[in-house]
């Protein structure tokens, strides 16, 4: 099976500051992959490079084609969904409008069913469809951000610290929903997460990032069992 996402020799950063050095990694169709690492290891930068929010060197192949020269919105239309750090909520728009934006590039006929599916996964959002998104709690906004990205029917969902600022109970619920979504729709996921424990619990594989380089890779079970990785990079 050929990879859904194949990254080779990715070097990227901000201006003259190089954050990522020569990364190689891949995500297979339907897979849940986690990128772990301490603060400042380059996790968010990796996702931003995949979405084209920052440019870099190296090749990014997605769904059989090179996307490293494409703009962010073009990559989104090809099927890369991105739940950004800070959630990217349209705070002055309603929940329903937020979801419609997520499906902006899809034909009108598909939006209705996509919305129903989103409300099925996140019942709270259905109850609050007419509410301004900015008036919801952090947990609800995180659900909305995930639902918004899923509205675009992505083949690959990038999630940047989905547990950030959420209570443990809410985090657990969110990851349950992510696992359920992956199972039902086969959407592949690449998750960047500080909370290694919960992320590894739904992941197939994991990469550990240290100072902009991949220092370890393996199945979720292998990474979880490796004491030296836990001590050095995960702080647990």
């Amino acid at each position: 099976m050929s990879a859904l996402l194949a990254v080779r020799g990715l070097t990227a950063g901000y201006g003259s500051l190089i954050v990522l050095r020569d990364l190689d990694f891949h995500v297979d169709p339907g897979e849940v992959v986690v990128i772990l690492g301490a603060n400042g290891a380059g996790k968010t930068t990796t996702l931003r490079a995949l979405s084209g929010e920052i440019s870099g060197e190296g090749t990014i192949e997605f769904d059989g084609r090179r996307v490293d020269g494409s703009r962010t919105d073009q990559r989104a239309r090809l099927g890369i969904g991105h739940v950004p750090e800070g959630r990217g909520t349209f705070v002055d728009l309603t929940v329903e409008e937020n979801l419609r934006i997520g499906a902006y590039h899809r034909p009108a006929a598909q939006v209705r069913s996509a919305m129903d599916r989103a409300f099925g996964l996140f019942p709270t959002l259905g109850e609050r469809r007419a509410q301004l998104a900015g008036s919801m709690s952090g947990g609800e906004q995180q659900m909305l951000a995930v639902a918004r990205a899923l509205m675009g029917d992505p083949k690959l969902l990038l999630l940047d610290e989905p547990s950030m600022g959420l209570a443990p109970m809410v985090t657990a619920e969110l990851f349950r929903t992510l696992a359920e979504t992956n199972e039902r729709t086969g959407t592949a996921m690449l998750i960047v997460e500080q909370n290694a424990q919960i992320a590894l619990s739904i992941a197939d594989r994991a990469y550990v990032l240290g100072h902009g380089q991949i220092v370890s890779a393996g199945t979720a079970a292998e990474i979880r069992a490796d004491d030296s990785i836990r001590r050095a990079y995960l702080g647990v």
Partner: peptide
């Protein structure tokens, strides 16, 4: 209209709009 939603979205939050596939 849908175009109007896109115009409002792009004005409010350009980076999030790009991630949603809107040509800002």
């Amino acid at each position: 209209t849908k175009l109007g939603l896109g115009l409002r979205a792009a004005a409010m939050n350009p980076s999030s709009s790009r991630l949603a596939g809107i040509d800002v």
